[in-house]
Amino acid sequence: MVVTGNVDDTEMLNMDTKPLGVQEILAGVISLVCLASIIGLINLIRIDLHEGATKVPSYEDMRKIAENDLHTLQSSMVSLVAKISSLASLKEVLTAQIESTSVMIKEKYPSVPLTPKTFLDRTYADYKIKKPLRDIAEAALNDMKTRLTGIGGEKEVAQQELDRINKDLSDSIEKLRHLDLSKGMQVQNWLRGNCRPIRPWFHGSLALILLGVFVRLSFRLALMRGWIKPNKV
């Protein structure tokens, strides 16, 4: 159909009062669904960002955990050293070793807090938190065991004390390994359950796509209802 002549302005104004058609209802419903989905996704992203930032332990927190473990080890060592005070050099060796281990631990765990922007770093953080803690503690203890086996003095007394030290150290290593693994697993499980790196990106991308659909359908609905005003070039 070819329309010629002038179009009456009242015809354009009356478009707003004409009954809704199938296409207009469809466009409106889909637009509302998209809008509701966008709001829900934004809420999910907000939760991801907010809880992710507050719940994920920082490097500083994990450094303190590692230090506490080492302090537990240190207390154990001090009590062992007190038992073998006759072997004077052992105390100095153990103290120096423990101090150097503490320094090494602090260097391995720099105090860099996680920010919401570094979601993808969390798996790496998990690796950095768990593995060096166990490696360093085990290396330190093994080194101490090696040094203790070379200490001189009265042979029988020293042998007895060394046997006890070795036994206690083995117990401490086992205890430390158990504690360290459980903490690591806790962190890892928390990360897997609450802070999967892909989630905010997935939700964000989905929200953007839905935003595009919403804008386009809203425009289409406005076009169908005649809400877009006439204009001149």
Binding site: M12, V22, I30, L217, L223, P230, K232, V233
Partner: peptide, 20 residues
Amino acid sequence: RFQAVPPAPTTVASQGINVF
């Protein structure tokens, strides 16, 4: 002056397509 208007299809299927 000019106004942008959508096509006015008659069948329900065409109206559904017209939305997109």
